[in-house]
Amino acid sequence: MALIEISNLEKSFGKLAVLKRISCSFEQGCIVSILGPNASGKTTLIKSILGMVIPDSGEILFRGQPVINTFAYKKHIGYMPQTGCYPDNIKIGQLFNMMQDIRRPYPDLDTGLIKLFGLEAMYQKRMGVLSGGTRQKVSAALAFMFNPDVLILDEPTAGLDPVAAEQLKEKIREEKSRGKLILVTSHIMSEVDEIADTVLYLFEGQIKFYKPLSVLKAETGEEKLGKALTKILK
């Protein structure tokens, strides 16, 4: 059984149809990269899974259970937003405490990224004074903290310094190997190339293709994802 199953998902904002009857499913132990041009529905799809956008019709099943308008399933999801914005006067330590408060009871905490990014030393710093990069680190640490079965990462490496970006990618691969499902959106083709094993390409609210990276490369005969995409979309 697929971990997440989406069927006939539709969503429009006013007259603009953003998702047009999308159906797909995501398995455990995969890194799926969701790609597509701007306004193709990537964010809407992710937000639908997270319950932030409420679809007009269709269904989202998590482990076979419909999840629209429920929230309990979210304890199995870790989400890293594109830009992490937090209340200015909250300290990093307080933010972590707060999330732990909210998600209680939770399984063992995964504090790997906190240590890796050296965030412990900054527990007393207020969110308002942090750089964009540090905030991304905090977001990433939060997403991975609760050992969720699903990780949804929106442009995870944007704004991170190269070292941290590498560390994060390593972490993503590690989690995959532990059987987790990871959904990533990214604009950096090389990065997708590096970590993803499946590509879901959205175009104007519809799935253009949803194929393993290897198949994609074999079909096009290209080594690089970027070139393969260009070829396919011609």
Binding site: G51, M52, I77, G84, Y86, P87, D88, I102
Partner: peptide
């Protein structure tokens, strides 16, 4: 509105709206 993104993050957590 200043904590709008934070609210988004909260919505992604297992808490009811």
């Amino acid at each position: 509105f200043n904590t709008y993104e934070f609210t988004e993050l909260l919505v992604s957590q297992p808490v009811s709206r």
